[in-house]
Write a protein that binds this DNA or RNA. Structure first.
Lengths: 336, 336
DNA sequence: CTGAAAGCGCTAACAT
DNA sequence: ATGTTAGCGCTTTCAG
């Protein structure tokens, strides 16, 4: 690889001059600049990013920690971060946390070590204190899908409670009285917030009459988990007519369980999911789901992260996003 | 950030000693090593990766270029590369090419500049010469989903032809005579290879009788493309009873077009997809599809890339993968 | 407008 | 077993 010295020698200038044209410094004569540029091209010169980062103490890298890139939800998050990053001349380092505290921690540490200028972290397994410590260490970390007390300005998150409330309310408004909740057995805050929204919606509508019982089942947040939870719910509650699920995948499992038992969706049982992920549109019937505006959230996270890292004035946008309900074909009025 | 000097001073040793314990050199007394380790911990020291890369001329980074991380297919590829990389102490830099030559080129260049030790490239828009030039420049590039003449040992790819043949043959064996192909209008080699496999399967079965006509339509490789192509096919060929599609998304679109016209799948028309992606299992009916073993391919790519970059002896595995047919519920025997 | 020179934090001879 | 030291490729004063 040609170095800056090679270019300097070949062009008959000093390395300082070459450095200046690399960085587009205005105080180089355009003649010299042209000469240098030509030489760089001839030599196939590429500035060594490691050297630049070392000396200037700032890289153009943005680190992203997600649970699992192969999950379309996180894929989408990464993509939108990349779009913004690319626009600003930054590139991405990624780390997978796989919902495990140790892996998440390791991923963050690895990225810090690799001198990322900023960091976008989706962590559910690490506690507030650990995250606060990282935030103190790095300075340019933005947390996505999480609200950490004391770090409100660095958090971008969704109102899970409201999404769940919306979904449950929609079901109630359709006339359902026996609405169940299928939750995740993973001990992360999202599931309790969604459960709370579900329960509160139910409670809101039974202040006058006591006719909306709470029915819940918890299992792993995947397809078979949804299937098992639904099976359990059906066994325990014969007159159930609607379910709100923690996410779309569990909803898919729930629909399978229902279909296997000859219940039709939505004629016999209505189903609502959460995330409005890719599969929502491919399920049969198409799934009504709470939309998670991850694209916007990821883009904002990237903008904030880069702004903080380059001490630009950060647009003071609130990190709190409100979900909306996307109505498709998995909800109908109850029978009778 | 504490540097190696800080640690050395604090521990009362030289930077060389600290460097030795960082790198697990065996020639340090375990007493000193322990002391140094403790000091590193106390100071919250993290080795500066940029400095290490600069001086040692090798990083522990592996670059991955895909078309779009938010596509589950690529997400899966990235994940499996990460798994292997992580196991070997490497981390990932990613770049999106979005099927555009300029973006792909830029992504590769950016990664090279960032001193990745190795590179896994999924490129469909760049020509062989460009890719060969990059390969010459970097040395540790592995190409995935592509076969570049002269670089066979660095290519990991799927036998598209065989996959298409398999799918078409399966349809014929079920008794179908009017089997159509929905292809991608993008000018990449995959689509012509799959078309060839389709045509050859048809030809194989009409050597004795001329009863299997070729019927094709091409459109964008997405859902609406599949829908349009299917509509066109139906209009032109009233007695068509089966379609083989370029990928699962187009198959999804085709199924929509069919359903909209009151044709049942698979009773009236059988459908086969390609990739066996996430959605294949969620479509209704579940889609029979050609499985693309991207996980294994990605893992092998990562292993090879790392091996080459660290001049380890590379296991001489062939990069040629054979697809298999995953039978689900979208294929049946034809009517009558 | 350009050049000389001092490091950035670390590794790897080379000494001891 | 440990210390000294010369850079890696680049940016950035500071002089001219």
């Amino acid at each position: 690889m040609a170095t800056i010295k090679d270019v300097a020698r070949q062009a008959g200038v000093s390395v300082a001059t070459v450095s200046r044209v690399i960085n587009g410094s205005p105080l180089t004569k355009s003649d010299t600049a042209d000469l240098v540029k030509r030489t760089m091209r001839e030599l196939g010169y590429r500035p060594n990013a490691a050297a630049r980062t070392l000396v200037s103490k700032r890289s153009r890298a943005i680190g992203v920690v997600v649970a699992d890139v192969s999950d379309p939800f996180f894929g989408s998050l990464v993509k939108h971060v990349d779009t913004i990053a690319h626009r600003q001349g930054h590139h991405l380092l990624i780390g997978n946390g796989y919902h495990e505290a140790a892996r998440e921690k390791q991923a963050i540490e690895s990225l810090i070590q690799n001198q990322v200028a900023s960091l976008i972290v989706h962590s559910k397994a690490l506690d507030d204190d650990t995250l606060r410590a990282f935030s103190e260490e790095h300075g340019a970390i933005v947390f996505i899908n999480r609200l950490i007390p004391g770090l409100e300005g660095r958090c971008i998150f969704l109102d899970n409670y409201r999404g769940a409330f919306l979904a449950t309310e929609h079901l109630i408004e359709q006339g359902h009285r026996y609405v169940a909740y299928i939750g995740s057995s993973h001990p992360i805050e999202d599931t309790v917030q969604r459960q709370q929204g579900y329960e509160d919606a139910l409670n809101t509508y039974r202040v006058t009459d006591k006719t909306h019982p709470v029915m819940m089942a918890f299992d792993t947040p995947d397809e078979t988990g949804g299937e098992r939870a639904m099976a359990k719910l059906m066994a325990d509650n014969p007159n159930l007519s609607a379910v709100f699920c923690y996410n779309d995948i569990m909803a898919a499992g729930a629909m399978t369980a229902l279909t296997d038992r000859d219940f039709r969706v939505p004629e016999d049982v209505s189903v609502v999911g959460f995330d409005d992920s890719l599969i929502a549109r491919y399920l049969h019937p198409k799934l009504t789901s709470v939309r998670y505006p991850i694209e916007e959230m990821a883009a904002l996270a990237a903008e904030q992260a880069i702004a903080v890292s380059s001490q630009q004035p950060m647009r003071d946008e609130k990190g709190n996003y409100t979900p909306t309900l996307i109505k498709r074909n998995s909800v109908a009025k109850p029978n009778e």
